[in-house]
Design a protein around this nucleic acid. Structure first.
Length: 705
DNA sequence: CAGTGAGCGAGCTTCCGCTTGACTT
């Protein structure tokens, strides 16, 4: 019988979480962490029979090993387990968490201990030398004292269906990733990689790049009029009498997107409009309620930190981790927008105290998690104590940390505040010239009640129009045609890529930040000076190959389908290795086929526009040790080669430091370490001018080493 | 800063998702 005075050992995934829980529970409990997964497929040595650490002919049986990194911590857990009266596995309630609990049982040899649910292998009964403590599984979704206490009274057994869904995920990623990567080694270069997630991300970037390359810029014009109301009485102070309206229709024909294409036509309209009579054709007024945004998940935090604080996903997660470790925010890797009851109660109290009861909504506001793939093991990202306002919190000198906290705090408080009310006015104006009838439009908007906007500012344009009514006569003080150019689609950056990946159900909160790193480290992608993500020639080559021959892997539908399969495994309705078999057999056949069919040459050579100046054959783009180069297609008969002109690095711009005196020019360079683009001086090292941004915009901060 | 290439196929080191530090640029 277990001794009464023995403590219970609780194992969670994160050491910070362990510390917090320990402080709730006090004596009687030891809380330790697993530091994530404790077992995994082997990385280097494999037996050819159990390819990649998976026994393909034996129902894809995985050959798990304990990574060197996990060994030390596991022996610590083992020691604590032997002393404990009960072992409580409290990893997260999702696929990976359930699997961690199961792996802990395996790695700590707990399976012969009296696991509450069943002991399959009755032959190995634990030796009588030491008694077998209870082994239990508990789950909770928020780190609060009542939630933990509640969980402790409701232990359950391991859900093997959920574990099997994770095994299926793991095995599929290994098989697809390793076989595809090796295909690339054979056809392009050793050390390259491909996988379900990184290849889909690369495809997004490459397709966007194609759209940008195919984009043809067009010029167009929009026409607007500055108008004044002809007043009989004096206008009220503070309300401007002048406003601007944009031309919308000509003789009842709407102007097609993007606008008027010919300059002559635009000029003619301006001339004609200048002489027209303007009057108000209609006024529509309405009040619109605007709801606050849901509290942060990992994905939306990264997006906002990028847009508002200019932090990369990686830096955002680093800062969030620091805040989490200080106990200031809840867990930062989450896909859930749910909030603990207590946190909402506190938020409402704070809102009422600081802003008044008008800002407190009648009921709690709950947010449905949008992502279909969400597993919701955690809460949304929020301050652990809403009364720790950004003003009261000192960031110990770290300004960015403080800013990120302020962002998280505001988003959370705002999400429990009342809706904002906006008054919107839409005015239609007609203008009649001798020849034509024109229609113009303008919109006004102002805030009637700010609600959550008090805390969470949104680009909320306020346009106040004069008091207008139908048939009011107007006077045009100016009619102008403005020239515009259509813009190509923007390249992805951290924020927009993470957003799209999440929408497609590709990747998880714990991996979003590392996806960018992977494809940059593989040199598939580079960061531009504007910090957006641009595929390199190598990235385009790899993507071409994967898309052409292994479309399934980068098919956005594929991830959705396979996720559904994992869910059915988790529900116990499908057998995991049968799902894997159905995927792997055709996939592997295709790999074998393409290994034979696709030649190295076909994989890497691309036609070019150039002609060989020695023999007249067309030149082709080839892939060598040092990147791309032009070679004669008549090789080996003709061995003519040429360099591919590198994009010009020296800009036609004088160096802001020495340009006027010594004639230095601004040069685009890349840092050795991270290959980030910066601007330097052509006379370096004599002149050490350097800047992250293009110098013409402003004198930017000097680079630090 | 110049230099890069075929094909047999041995031998490299590749996947994704959980977690933190220990490591360079």
């Amino acid at each position: 019988m277990p001794a009464k005075n023995k403590t219970s050992l609780i194992i969670v995934e994160s050491p910070t979480k362990a510390r917090t829980i320990s402080s709730f529970l006090g004596k009687g409990y030891t809380v330790l962490s697993s530091y994530g997964h404790v077992r995994d497929l082997p990385t280097n040595k494999f037996d050819p029979k159990t390819r990649f650490g998976i026994d393909i002919n034996n129902n894809f049986e995985p050959q798990y090993v304990i990574p060197a990194k996990a060994k030390e911590n596991l022996s610590r857990l083992q020691k604590a387990a032997k002393k404990a009266g009960a072992i409580i596995l409290a990893s997260d309630e999702d696929r990976e968490g359930e699997s961690i609990a199961w792996h802990l049982i395996q790695a700590l040899n707990l399976e012969t201990w009296n696991m509450k649910h069943e002991i399959e292998d009755k032959k190995h009964v634990s030796s009588s030398k030491f008694y077998a403590p209870r082994v239990e599984r508990i789950v909770f979704h928020e780190i609060t004292k009542p939630a933990i206490e509640q969980a402790l009274t409701h232990p359950r057994s391991i859900n093997m269906d959920l574990v099997n869904a994770q095994q299926a995920r793991r095995v599929l990623d290994r098989l697809a990733g390793y076989e595809l990567s090796q295909f690339l080694w054979h056809k392009i270069k050793y050390g390259l990689s491909a996988g379900r997630v990184q290849s889909a991300a690369l495809r997004l970037l490459c397709e966007r790049e194609q759209q940008i390359n195919a984009f043809k810029q067009t010029q167009y014009y929009t026409i607007s009029a500055k108008l004044q109301k002809l007043q009989k009485t004096k206008p009220k102070l503070q309300i401007p009498n002048e406003f601007t309206a944009e031309l919308n229709r000509i003789n009842n024909e709407p102007i097609t997107e993007p606008g008027i294409l010919e300059k002559q036509k635009a000029d003619d309209i301006v001339t004609d409009l200048t002489r027209a009579d303007f009057s108000v054709a209609g006024v529509a007024k309405k009040n619109v309620a605007r709801s606050p945004l849901a509290p942060f998940t990992t994905s939306t935090l990264q997006q906002d930190a990028w847009n508002k604080l200019h932090c990369s996903s990686k830096q955002t997660m680093l800062l969030a981790q620091q805040l989490y470790e200080q106990g200031l925010i809840t867990y930062m890797r989450t896909d859930s927008t749910s909030l603990s009851y207590g946190s909402v109660v506190k938020a409402r109290k704070l809102i009422s105290e600081q802003f008044g009861t008008a800002y407190v909504p009648e009921t709690f506001i709950t947010y449905k998690t949008r992502s279909r793939m969400a597993q919701e093991a955690h809460e949304a990202i929020r301050p652990t104590d809403p009364f720790q306002t950004p003003e009261t919190f000192s960031a110990q000198g770290d300004a960015k940390q403080h800013k990120l906290y302020a962002l998280i705090w505001s988003r959370f408080i705002a999400c429990q505040m009342a809706k904002a009310i906006l008054a919107q006015t839409s005015v239609t104006i007609c203008a009649q010239s001798q020849k034509n009838a024109y229609e113009l439009k303008t919109n006004g908007q102002y805030v009637v009640f700010d609600g959550f906007l008090r805390v969470w500012k949104i680009n909320q344009k306020e346009t106040i129009l004069p008091d207008l009514a139908k048939n009011d006569q107007l006077k045009a003080t100016a009619v102008t045609a403005e020239e515009h150019f259509t813009q190509p689609p923007a390249r992805y950056n951290d924020a927009s890529l993470v957003k799209t990946l999440e929408q497609l159900g590709i990747g998880r909160p714990s991996t979003y930040a590392s996806i960018m790193n992977t494809i940059i480290n593989r040199m598939y992608v580079e960061r531009t000076a504007a910090r957006s993500l641009q595929p390199t020639p190598l990235g385009i080559l790899v993507n071409d190959l994967v898309v052409t021959h292994f479309y399934d892997i980068v098919d956005y539908q594929f991830t959705a389908q396979i996720e559904q399969d994992f869910d059915t495994i988790a529900q116990g309705k499908k057998i995991w290795h049968e799902v894997i078999k159905a995927f792997y057999e055709p996939f592997h056949k295709n790999i074998e086929l393409k290994e034979k069919q696709v030649s190295r040459r076909e994989a890497t050579e691309r036609p070019s526009e150039q002609v060989c100046d020695k023999c007249g054959h067309p030149m082709v783009v080839k892939w060598g040790k040092y990147g791309q180069f032009l070679a004669c297609s008549n090789y080996p008969a003709c061995s003519n080669i040429k360099k591919i002109a590198q994009p010009k690095t020296e800009l036609d711009m004088p160096c802001p430091v020495c340009g006027s005196i010594q004639g230095g020019k601004v040069v685009v360079r890349k840092t050795k370490a991270r290959k980030r683009i910066f601007y330097g001086c052509s006379r370096w090292p004599t002149c050490n001018f350097a800047s992250w941004k293009k110098p013409e915009e402003q004198n930017e901060e000097k680079m630090t080493k």
